[in-house]
Computed example of a mutant assay.
Amino acid sequence: MTSKTSARKVRYAVVGAGNIAQVAVLPAFANAGENSELVALVSGDPIKREALPARYASIEALGDYDEFEAVLARARVDAVFIATPNTHHREFTERAARAGVHVLCEKPMAPTVSDCEAMIAACLEHRVKLMIAYRLHFEAANLQAIEALKSGKIGDPRVFSSLFSQQVRPGDIRTRPELAGGAILDLGVYPINAARYLFREEPIEVLAAVSRSGDARFDGVDETTTAILRFASGRVAQLTVSLGASSTGYYRVIGTEGDLHAEPIYDYEQALKFVVTTEGKPREHRFPARDQFAPELLEFSRCVLERREPEPSGEEGLADIRVVEAILQSARTGQAVQLPPWSRRHRPDLEQEVGKPPVAPPEPIGAPSPTIR
Rank of each mutant, 00 (worst) to 15 (best):
Thr2Glu: 14
Ser3Asp: 08
Thr5His: 14
Thr5Trp: 10
Val23Ser: 08
Val25His: 08
Phe29Ile: 01
Ala30Thr: 06
Gly33Lys: 03
Ala51Tyr: 05
Ser58Ala: 13
Glu60Lys: 14
Asp64Arg: 10
Ala75Leu: 03
Asp78Tyr: 06
Asp78Val: 02
Val80Ser: 09
Val80His: 09
Ile82Ala: 04
Thr87Gly: 14
Phe92Gln: 00
Phe92Lys: 00
Ala96Met: 02
His102Cys: 05
Leu104Cys: 06
Ala110Tyr: 03
Cys116Pro: 01
Cys123Tyr: 05
Glu125Met: 08
Val128Tyr: 04
Tyr134Asn: 00
His137Asp: 11
Arg158Met: 12
Ser165Ile: 10
Gln167Thr: 14
Gln167Asp: 15
Gln167Pro: 05
Arg176Ala: 12
Leu179Ile: 04
Asp186Leu: 13
Ala194Asn: 13
Tyr197Phe: 11
Tyr197Asn: 08
Leu198His: 00
Arg200Pro: 02
Ile204Gln: 10
Ile204Asn: 11
Glu205Cys: 12
Ala208His: 05
Val210Thr: 12
Ser213Tyr: 10
Gly214Glu: 11
Val221Glu: 02
Val221Arg: 04
Asp222Val: 00
Glu223Phe: 06
Thr224Arg: 10
Ala227Asn: 06
Leu229Thr: 02
Ala232Leu: 12
Ser233Asn: 03
Val241Arg: 03
Ser247Thr: 11
Ser247Phe: 12
Tyr251Pro: 04
Arg252Thr: 13
Ile254Ser: 09
Glu257Ile: 03
Leu260Pro: 00
Leu260Ala: 08
Tyr266Glu: 01
Asp267Met: 11
Ala271Met: 12
Lys273Ala: 13
Val275Gly: 10
Lys281Gly: 11
Phe287Ser: 05
Phe287Leu: 04
Arg290Ala: 10
Asp291Val: 03
Gln292Asp: 05
Phe293Lys: 00
Ala294Lys: 00
Leu297Thr: 00
Leu297Met: 05
Leu298Pro: 00
Ser301Phe: 01
Glu306Trp: 07
Glu309Val: 04
Glu309Ile: 00
Pro310Thr: 01
Glu311Arg: 06
Val324Thr: 08
Glu325Asn: 08
Ala326Cys: 11
Gln329Thr: 14
Gln329Asn: 13
Arg332Val: 06
Arg332Ala: 13
Gln338Asp: 15
Pro340Met: 11
Ser343Cys: 12
Arg345Met: 15
Asp349Ser: 07
Pro358Asp: 04
Ala360Trp: 13
Gly366Lys: 13
Pro368Leu: 09
Thr371Ala: 12
